[in-house]
Design a protein around this nucleic acid. Structure first.
Lengths: 337, 337
DNA sequence: GTGAAAGCGCTAACAT
DNA sequence: ATGTTAGCGCTTTCAC
C-alpha cells in the first residue's frame, strides 16, 4: 500500500495525498476527508524510509547514556522516552560505557544515522579536558544535555543545582551540631565537581572540620564505601555525619555503621529506590529528573520547530532534600536540647 | 557526499560503489580497494534513509519493555543493546507501561517503522487471555521474548527456569527446618505464575505448611510488603521464612522483620542491586539475564541471516540461587543442632 | 567485473 | 485547491 494506491482510490494525485499526510492547509476539507477515509480504510502508513529520504529526517532522537542499567540513567531514559513519544518522536538508544573512544563512536554513529537531535544523559559526557568531539557534532545537529553543562553553541543544558543542594544538606547537618562530616564520592564528572563544591562551601560557611581525611574518593561500589567507612570508624577518627555523592555509597556507609551499632546521620544523592530500601531509609538529595527531563524535551521540541529564540541554552532547577529515617533518626545534639 | 561523488572520484559507476558497500563479491579486489580508499578519504557514509528505501530495512531492532526505570528491565535493555550494537544493529526503544492498548500501539508503531525484529522484555507482554495482537505482528516480523513464553510461529522465547529456581529455594529452606514459609508476590504474569508454581511445588514436595494465608498477593511496593509482613508477624502467626517474587518485596519484608528485631531467612528474586544493598544483604534468585540476553541476540542474528533452522523457538536456562546474609545469618534449627 | 537505467515511496517546486 | 514532475540516494536487474 503506497501513496499511489491511496491517490488512485480517491481519484486525486499523490501530491494531494502527500499534502494531507503532512497537514498542509492547501487542501479542501472535502478532499481531505476523502483521503483520510481512504487511508483509514486501507490502513495506510507512509513508508518511513521514503519519508526520511524526502525530508531528511525520520523524527528520531538519539539518547545516549553511559549505562542504562544504572538506576539514575534508567529513570532519565524512561522519562525522556515517554515525553518524546508523546510528541511523536522516536527514540534510538545508545549505551556508551565510559570509554571516550566509544562515546565518540556513538556520537558519530547517531550523526551518520541522521537523527534529528541527540540527548546526552548525565555528566559523564562532559570530558575534563577536551570536548571538541561534542562541539563538532553540535555543529551539525542540536544536542541537549541533562544534568551536565557544556557552554557550546547549539548545545542546550538542563540541569539541577546540585551544588546548592549539597550545601543545604551540610547546612542542616551543621545546625544539628555535626562538625565532622565525612564526604564520600566516586568521580569528578561535572556533577561530581558540583557536589564536592557544595560540600566544601557548606563546610566553609559553617566553619566545620576541614581535615582532608574527611573527603574520600572511592570506587563506585557498595564494598568500597563500606570499607572506607569501616576503616575511618575503627581508626577512632571523630565522625558526626556522612554525606555521599551517590545513594549507593551512602548505603555502603550505612552498612558499616549498622555493623557497629553506630547511628549517625547519613545523606545520599539521587533519591533512588536504594534510598527507600535502605535500613534505616536514607535521606537523599533529589536532582529532579522528573522536572529536568520534561523540560529537556520541551526545549528540544522548540528547537525542532525552528523556534530557537524560545530555547534557553541553560536551564537550572533547584534540587530537593528528601528527609528519611537516616536523618531524623539521629539526634547528635539530643543531650543538649 | 553521495554515492555519486564516490563513484566519480574513483572513475567507476555507482553500481560498483554500491557493490562494495554491500560486500558483493562481484568486484575485483583492485577496484574494491580503490573505492574503499575513496570512501575513507571522503569519510563517506551511505544515507541510511536511501539505503532503507532500497533494502526495506534500516537494521534496526525494536526493544519493548513496560518500564526501563525498573532495574530488571533496565539490565536486560542494557545487555541486549550492547550485543545488538556489536552486530551493527540499531536499537529503538519503547516503554509501553502496562496498559494493553499502549502495548498494542507500540507494537504497531514499530511495525510501521519497519524495524527488522522486535524484542519483548519481560513477561508482562504475555497477556492472560488473548495474545492475538502479538501473533498478528509475528506474522510480519520475527519476535524474540526474554523471560516470557509464547508458543506462536515466528516467536522465539529465551527464558529462565524460574519455577525450578523457586522450588530449589524452598528446598533449601525446608532442609533448614522452615515449615511456615510466607510467599509474597505481586503479579501473575507468566513469570509470576512460574514462581508461584515453584513455591507450591516445593511446599508440596516437603510437605510444609500449606495454609492459604502464607500466600499473599500485594502491590509491587516496599510499603505493601512491609505492611503485610508486619501484620502477619504481629498477628502471632507462625513464620519461619519469607520468600518473595521480587527483591523489592523481600526488602519490604526485611524491614518489617528488622523493626521487630526478628531474624528469619528471606529470599528475593532477580538478584538486583537491592539484594546487595539490603541489610542484611538478601539471598536472591538470579534469572540469568547475563546469559538470556546474549542468547536472545544470537538467535535474532541467526533469524536475520535467514538461518531459521538454527533458531530454537524456546531456549531455557536454569536459574541460580545467590546466597547472602539473609540466609546464612539465620539458624532456625540452631537450638537443635 | 562493470555500467546504464529503472525503480523504491515519498516531498516539494512549479504549473494550472 | 489540485496535478505534474523532478528529485532524494540508494539497490538491483539487465546488458555488455
Amino acid at each position: 500500500m503506497t501513496i499511489y494506491d491511496i491517490a488512485k482510490s480517491c481519484a486525486v494525485s499523490i501530491a494531494t495525498v502527500s499534502r494531507v499526510l503532512n497537514g498542509s492547509n492547501k487542501v479542501s476539507p472535502k478532499t481531505r476527508e476523502k483521503v483520510l477515509a481512504a487511508m483509514n480504510e486501507h490502513n495506510y502508513k507512509p513508508n518511513p524510509f521514503a519519508r526520511g529520504l524526502g525530508l531528511n529526517s525520520m523524527k528520531m532522537i538519539g539518547i545516549l547514556c553511559t549505562d542504562v542499567s544504572d538506576a539514575f540513567f534508567a529513570k532519565a531514559v524512561s522519562l525522556v522516552e515517554h515525553d518524546l513519544r508523546k510528541r511523536g518522536l522516536d527514540v534510538i538508544l545508545g549505551c556508551t560505557g565510559n570509554e571516550l573512544s566509544d562515546k565518540k563512536k556513538y556520537l558519530q554513529l547517531f550523526l551518520d544515522k541522521h537523527v534529528d537531535a541527540i540527548i546526552l544523559i548525565g555528566s559523564p559526557f562532559r570530558e575534563e579536558q577536551d570536548n571538541s568531539h561534542i562541539e563538532k557534532i553540535a555543529k551539525q545537529i542540536p544536542i541537549i544535555t541533562i544534568n551536565s553543562l557544556l557552554d557550546v553553541p547549539n548545545i542546550y543544558c538542563v540541569l539541577c543545582n546540585e551544588k546548592e543542594g549539597m550545601q543545604k544538606a551540610i547546612e542542616l547537618l551543621a545546625k544539628r551540631n555535626c562538625n565532622d562530616i565525612l564526604y564520600l564520592y566516586d568521580s569528578l564528572s561535572y556533577s561530581g565537581q558540583q557536589k564536592l563544591a557544595g560540600y566544601k562551601a557548606g563546610i566553609q560557611q559553617y566553619n566545620l572540620n576541614k581535615t582532608s581525611h574527611l573527603i574520600q574518593k572511592i570506587p563506585r561500589t557498595l564494598e568500597a564505601a563500606e570499607a572506607i567507612t569501616a576503616k575511618l570508624l575503627d581508626s577512632g577518627i571523630e565522625l558526626s555525619a556522612i554525606v555521599a555523592s551517590e545513594d549507593l555509597l551512602a548505603v555502603g556507609a550505612q552498612k558499616a555503621l549498622s555493623a557497629r551499632g553506630i547511628i549517625l546521620p547519613v545523606v545520599g544523592f539521587n533519591n533512588s529506590i536504594l534510598a527507600e530500601c535502605s535500613t534505616p531509609s536514607l535521606t537523599s538529595i533529589d536532582n529532579r529528573l522528573d522536572v529536568l527531563c520534561p523540560a529537556a524535551v520541551t526545549i528540544l521540541a522548540q528547537i525542532l520547530n525552528g523556534d530557537f529564540a524560545a530555547a534557553p541554552s541553560k536551564t537550572v532547577f533547584p534540587s530537593l532534600l528528601v528527609e528519611r529515617e537516616s536523618f531524623s533518626h539521629n539526634k547528635p545534639n539530643k543531650k543538649r536540647s
